[in-house]
Design a protein around this nucleic acid. Sequence first.
DNA 1: CTTAATTCCAAGTATATTACTAGACATTAT
DNA 2: ATAATGTCTAGTAATATACTTGGAATTAAG
Lengths: 149, 149
Amino acid sequence: MKLSTKGRYGVKAMLDLAIHNSEGHISLKSIAERQDLSENYLEQLFATLRKAGIVKSIRGAQGGYTLAQSPENITVGSILRALEGSLAPVECVTESEPTQCERSGACVTKLIWERIRDRVNEVVDSITLEDLVDQYRKLNTKDEFIYYI
Amino acid sequence: MKLSTKGRYGVKAMLDLAIHNSEGHISLKSIAERQDLSENYLEQLFATLRKAGIVKSIRGAQGGYTLAQSPENITVGSILRALEGSLAPVECVTESEPTQCERSGACVTKLIWERIRDRVNEVVDSITLEDLVDQYRKLNTKDEFIYYI
DNA sequence: CTTAATTCCAAGTATATTACTAGACATTAT
DNA sequence: ATAATGTCTAGTAATATACTTGGAATTAAG
């Protein structure tokens, strides 16, 4: 039941981007350096995020990425689902195209997996990038800048 | 964020065992046949469940397994955590021995992972084998026996 | 116009994990 | 004595993860 690095790095990188959102285009290189992540690997994650309409890119020198929507409209859930796929704990309760077994109509354990799926989605869909930026600013006051993400 | 087959098969097999709990010792062979699982693989899962004190075994011919506690005292959470380890979505918020990074004291994303962990635990700890057996009996009335798990 | 900085794209790869299988041994009811 | 079980350890094929590599396309700045 672990998230992969895609989800973890993705949220971290998106929070970094949100924190610097007012500064124009942000390069992956700068995000990778600040967050100590592989730039090449981040490229793949941001390709996915771009296709999901969560970030916008500008190519060329001085190019980079910006949020495609304002931070209060980007949820952790949308980031995680873009990068990880459905957060359902088993295939058969995936929201979109569940691959149902022949017993799915009256499966007892399925009820457990659905409840887990729904609670997880509730949590991640209730937290926006704005919430995280606010938390970040509370923890990182200007006089003791420590940059925790 | 997927469960492995350990967790899925484990809950399935434990529900099967709970359903047949009144019939004495249940062999892995019979569980494997009814649930269409590998008997050898189930052995490994039940070795773990036995060490966790969730099932008891009787060796020799006509031996098998029984629940170590009554069904209302065995939660899905205890089964899943025995087989999968912590259900936390990332290592750093594992309940017992979290491997903390140097930033953990004031990490923003950590708050997300803790909330997911807590909601998942709430769900699985609130569902007992008795609940599942009840559900099962409702879905599988005697006159239309279909044995869905 | 050239260069450097960037995104974009497609493959390749080492490592780890998963989901088993295989086989030998120990125990016990019949 | 035998057959039916659980117990234990090791091996293994397939898959997924977490990247790396290399090159092409784009564009701001000098």
